[in-house]
Design a protein around this nucleic acid. Structure first.
Lengths: 240, 240
DNA sequence: CCTTTTTTGTAAAGGTTATGTAAAGGCTGA
DNA sequence: TCAGCCTTTACATAACCTTTACAAAAAAGG
């Protein structure tokens, strides 16, 4: 095993080795873990076996064509699939078979586009997983009021100017007030990333959140550190 | 009873079982409850009997064609109907529009499109009567007055000369004042398109709207940018 | 107690992404 | 054809997120 398991795993199924190489060379340095398959059956097998966060699938494949592969993938998997279609070649698409892909990518895609669509597709599937409850009700905790609809938080009458991640972090903590949230969990909620042991970004965000909340780590009114476990937003600030 | 009551119920009417399966396989895990019908008459019966939040209807059906099915559905139901048309077949669209289709999907749709349109269509039909009545009342926000009936907007006594899209954008923002509207949502409301990763047109419209409103992005009286989330029209311009 | 190890707090740097907007391109209806 | 409008493109800039580094605190172990 040469790859660490936390990367976004992408499978490309295409009979053109050059294209596979191209995609791999481009995505690898961006932190993706790219595998490839040159035929439909091989691709299908890999797609169903290895767990990938996304599959890039050429429509035209020798043996089993892309749509057939897609159909079989869909029989037992909901992995996001990006179909590679020939540019402008819309007329030869087989009516009725072409659904089930999450998005399409023209064969002449730019790397920028590839990356953007990959991200979009993986983000979407992460979102449906947690099935966003979309609760827009205001959350009140002590002097703190959080309004998801306007993405505003007010503490002691002052509007806090929070960055996107800080706001999400605060909402996440608030929705699980008085329960410890692991860094792992927090990171997943706010950015969908996986937590690594050396990842300190949550800590950094917590730090700046505290500064904006005027909160002291040693004697927290809001965010309490739970050593070796995570952070917790406390609903009733008690005096120590 | 196998299904929980709160899922969005979708009926697909298509003679291609593969397509029905694909839609079902894809939508089920996303929290939809999909039923299918293989013929016009069967579909019609189901559409009128079971209560669905949306119907996906193929234009080409053996026996009774899609338009006929749609016409009969419309005789006693206002359920949102998405027509499946062959790609680029403009005349189909025109016919369908007249009969009362709610939206179209090219047969080569991606699930991204499918999901976007399903959401749009169910959102629209979920609106309460008063919301749906397209409230033509004037909206007043600060120095700004918007009159949907005459499609005029006045700011500080001056009539703004807005383009159609700018006006719709302003109305949409105003009707959800103090709530962040995503670009996704805005784009859908004003043009029915679905948002692509590279789409900047909302930003551009916002920019020119701001110019006409004499609004400064950095210190907005009206339209506030909510980074990574969208835009928000603020009803009570606060001092910074 | 004292030392070592683990964990956390936070400043600063560096790279990345989102946004504002001008300009170009393209579509549509007169 | 032209005029008006919408979208796309392109680039500058600002805001942001993560990483790194180091200090401090807490726990563990003696």
């Amino acid at each position: 095993m040469t790859e660490s398991y936390d990367k976004t795993r992408v499978l490309i199924i295409d009979d053109d080795p050059k294209l596979c190489r191209l995609v791999k060379d481009y995505l690898d340095p961006m932190g993706y873990d790219v595998e490839s398959a040159g035929t439909g059956p091989a691709g299908l097998e890999k797609a169903l076996a290895g767990d990938f966060q996304a599959v890039i699938l050429d429509v035209m494949l020798p043996g089993m064509d892309g749509f057939e592969v897609l159909r079989r993938i869909r029989q037992s998997s909901t992995v996001p699939v990006l179909m590679l279609t020939a540019l402008g070649d819309e007329s030869d698409r087989i009516v009725g078979l072409e659904i089930g892909a999450d998005d399409y990518l023209p064969k002449t895609f730019s790397t920028r586009e590839l990356l953007a669509r990959l991200r979009a597709v993986t983000r979407r599937s992460n979102m449906t997983q947690s099935q966003k409850a979309e609760n827009d009700d205001e959350i009140a905790i002590g002097e703190l009021r959080i309004n998801p609809a306007s993405r505003q938080a007010i503490e002691g009458g002052q509007i806090l100017s929070l960055t996107p991640v800080e706001f999400d972090l605060l909402v996440t903590l608030a929705r699980s007030a008085d329960r410890v949230m692991s860094r792992d969990r927090l990171l997943d909620e706010i950015s969908g990333r996986d937590y690594e042991v050396f990842d300190r970004s949550i800590d950094v965000h917590i730090s700046s959140l505290r500064r904006k909340l005027n909160d002291d780590p040693k004697n927290p009114r809001y965010i309490k550190t739970v050593r070796s476990a995570g952070y917790m937003l406390i609903s009733r600030p008690e005096e120590a």
